[in-house]
Design a protein around this nucleic acid. Structure first.
Lengths: 244, 244
DNA sequence: CGTCCTCTTGACGGCTTTCAATAAAAGTGG
DNA sequence: CCACTTTTATTGAAAGCCGTCAAGAGGACG
């Protein structure tokens, strides 16, 4: 047991050697705890820190010049957040705690050393960044080209598919700890319209909801409504050379 | 002179050693030429190929279940396209030639060897992928949260800023070889509405246009309209260790 | 010279936002 | 544990932005 859900997550994709495991465990530094709503990092702030999410959810977002917020990504436990600091000395995205969270801090130079010493991990981390990039592209397509109802449905499906990667016994029920305004900021809608679309999904028997607890009643039909494709299931790391 | 604009581009960020230069030159395989409009790679196709763009522009896109197309990214000369094949055995994005193009093919396993032998290049390539990911996030924010006029303005500014990275003497005039339908597919608009928005930008004296030739007349104001931030100017690679 | 693609413009309709008001829930301090 | 405040959820009505439909003009290409 390493105790880090990041190492555990990488282990899903690759059988890690002892050297790789210990390098990963040295990667994570100081642990921090934030309460729901805390702004962890602000755009334009000088920073070369990455975070590993241990528990809780993070929101990654940008603010537009008219003051509106665009949530770019929900980050769940086990994820590495903030690789953009490889390219930018100044934060290009803000981070805030969607729930109470525990994270640990990773320094940029530690990432560099990991890349230098463990190329398999470098490729694996790059792979997972690609998955995130592709998912962001899917969200772009969803926001740009589909209707409000479909976007909300897509967010729900994307989220549950990712939760299933973490917790294999997630069925079709989960807690979405976002306010309707946050769902709107993620999908490019107003809170008011999110409310109407959720109601519409409930009325059509696609989902059930009580508070923030959501149950998917008809996943195939919801997927059809959303135009959703589960990219996460298609990831393949078996081509990487085995070292064990 | 290496002859590859990809190597040249990396050289802007890092003083490459001889070993790195020769590894990069071995990376690029067979060269191919495509005519404007050619579908180079289709989503769902089995593929483990990457491309380096030598001349011309590529369009990366996905098709939605209602048949509409979302253009995710324009790829300009010097760019490495298709790193998603690290994570996915099957193409997750389609590629097509926006103009006549020359590309060379890079195999996935060659990328693996590059990562294994040259960690600085691994980090540098990861950096540039981060820049693309951040730019896609900006486009998501633009499409989700700003009006049609602002989205078109943002596309124009993003494009010219990237052209300036390639060609330092680009002033405020360039050729945008996209049809209005393609601009619409990139910004989440219909061709009809793109036409109206371009006219509006012209009428307001922000740009001039004749055919596909665009001149920016008032860049600060256009940036204000678009809510545009030039991420490309903020990239910093000086923290990477020097080897030369 | 004809065909096809792209550009252009107008009118109409629908989806989403905005504005407003109330109810419900959650957080705070006594 | 309760009173109070703040945040979040909910619903209705009106306005606005953009899509859809339609028709014609201009250009590229065979």
């Amino acid at each position: 047991m390493t105790g880090s859900c990041f190492v555990e997550r990488l282990g899903h994709y690759l059988r890690l050697t002892d050297g790789e495991q210990s390098a990963l465990s040295r990667l994570e530094g100081q642990e921090r705890v934030y309460r729901r709503g805390t702004l962890i990092r602000q755009e334009h702030e000088r920073s070369s820190e990455l975070f590993v999410v241990h528990s809780g959810w993070l929101l990654k977002f940008v603010l537009l010049n008219d003051g509106t917020r665009q949530i770019l990504r929900l980050h769940l436990p086990g994820e590495l957040v903030g690789l953009s600091c490889l390219a930018f000395p100044v934060a290009v995205e803000s981070l805030c705690a969607a729930t109470d969270v525990r994270v640990s801090v990773v320094d940029r130079t530690a990432m560099w050393e990991l890349f230098a010493d463990h190329p398999r991990l470098a490729v694996l981390i790059s792979m997972l960044e690609q998955v995130e990039r592709v998912a962001t592209g899917d969200r772009l397509a969803s926001v740009a080209r589909s209707k409000a109802r479909a976007r909300v449905a897509a967010l729900i499906l994307d989220t549950i598919c990712r939760l299933r990667l973490i917790n294999r016994d997630t069925e079709s029920s989960f807690v979405l700890p976002l306010t309707q305004e946050e769902i709107g900021d993620a999908t490019g809608l107003t809170a008011v319209h999110v409310n109407r679309m959720v109601r519409s999904l409930v009325d059509d028997g696609l989902i059930r909801r009580s508070g923030h607890h959501i149950t998917i009643l008809d996943e195939p039909r919801l997927g059809e409504v959303a135009g959703f494709v589960n990219r996460y299931a298609a990831v393949d790391s078996t081509w990487l050379p085995s070292l064990s």
